[in-house]
Amino acid sequence: MAMELRAFTLCLRVATELPADRQIILFAYRTADYDELNVWRERDGRVSFTLSGDGVFFHLPPITTFRTSLCLTWESNRGLVAFWVDGKRSSYQVYKPGHTVRPGGTVLLGQDADKHLGDLEATQSFVGEVTDLNMWDHVLSRSAIQAWHYGHRVPEGNVFAWASIEYAPSGNVLVVDDD
């Protein structure tokens, strides 16, 4: 990630058949020193969002074998954070007002690096489908998030855009066209 973030919207479509009581990481962004930004499904079924330390937890509908549109919004000014599931917003929580996501890290989908680019744990790995990952350096409006959920055209992510992401599959990862 080449920029410092004081706000963002992260959206992806995700499906899994892993048991609800299995911890999985959906998105990890790590610099050399910190887990800067992580999104987890915890063992108790809650979804957590962490920025450089302790996180906030949300009770969301379960992620199942059917694709779920999942977005996360956060802005540093007031610290407002919310998840969006299939176009519907959770309640807001206040989390880390004044924080900045630091640049210079690496993104891992479906795996958590316990140190920068190393020490991966199979028991935390994601098994399922991830697609349409986009990230913007601002909080998208309700109408834009709902449009993205329904597959309408919205400007592609200016931090990450699924159509142009350069990635390196590792392990038992398959890249499949979805038509």
Results as ranks from 00 to 15, higher is better:
42 E>R: 02
172 N>V: 14
2 A>T: 12
100 T>W: 04
142 R>D: 14
107 V>P: 09
108 L>K: 07
142 R>W: 08
125 S>H: 11
81 V>H: 11
142 R>A: 09
31 T>V: 07
108 L>R: 05
136 W>L: 01
30 R>K: 09
120 L>I: 05
46 R>Y: 01
161 A>D: 13
157 G>H: 01
19 P>F: 03
163 A>C: 09
129 E>P: 05
13 R>M: 00
114 D>A: 08
163 A>Y: 04
150 Y>W: 11
172 N>Q: 13
22 R>L: 10
15 A>T: 03
10 L>V: 06
7 A>V: 01
5 L>F: 10
152 H>F: 09
144 A>N: 06
88 K>H: 14
170 S>W: 02
53 G>A: 05
171 G>E: 08
95 Y>P: 11
24 I>H: 05
9 T>P: 13
6 R>F: 13
15 A>P: 13
119 D>E: 07
3 M>G: 15
108 L>G: 12
37 L>N: 04
21 D>I: 03
68 T>S: 04
132 D>T: 07
130 V>T: 11
125 S>G: 08
118 G>Y: 10
97 P>W: 05
111 Q>F: 03
112 D>E: 10
149 H>V: 01
20 A>Y: 06
24 I>V: 13
153 R>T: 11
20 A>K: 09
143 S>L: 05
4 E>L: 02
83 F>Q: 00
30 R>C: 09
175 V>Y: 00
155 P>Y: 08
55 G>P: 05
22 R>D: 13
131 T>N: 08
64 T>E: 07
66 F>E: 15
163 A>E: 12
178 D>A: 14
58 F>N: 02
39 V>C: 11
56 V>A: 15
43 R>L: 06
75 E>C: 02
129 E>C: 10
122 A>F: 12
34 Y>T: 12
97 P>Q: 04
14 V>N: 03
26 L>M: 14
135 M>F: 00
41 R>V: 02
178 D>W: 03
25 I>L: 08
46 R>V: 07
43 R>M: 09
127 V>W: 01
46 R>C: 04
138 H>G: 15
82 A>I: 02
14 V>R: 02
167 Y>G: 10
128 G>F: 03
7 A>E: 15
157 G>P: 01
151 G>P: 03
173 V>M: 03
51 L>Y: 12
48 S>D: 06
53 G>N: 06
32 A>S: 14
103 P>D: 15
122 A>I: 09
17 E>N: 15
18 L>D: 12
137 D>T: 00
110 G>M: 00
113 A>P: 11
157 G>M: 01
103 P>N: 14
178 D>Y: 10
175 V>W: 00
100 T>Q: 06
54 D>G: 12
88 K>M: 12
131 T>F: 11
129 E>S: 09
128 G>N: 02
57 F>D: 15
131 T>D: 14
115 K>D: 12
72 L>N: 02
171 G>P: 09
122 A>D: 13
36 E>Q: 11
17 E>C: 08
21 D>L: 08
83 F>Y: 13
163 A>M: 05
12 L>V: 08
123 T>K: 08
123 T>V: 10
9 T>C: 08
75 E>H: 01
122 A>H: 14
124 Q>F: 14
16 T>K: 09
60 L>F: 06
18 L>C: 14
124 Q>T: 12
39 V>Y: 05
106 T>R: 15
138 H>Y: 15
36 E>D: 15
137 D>N: 10
15 A>C: 06
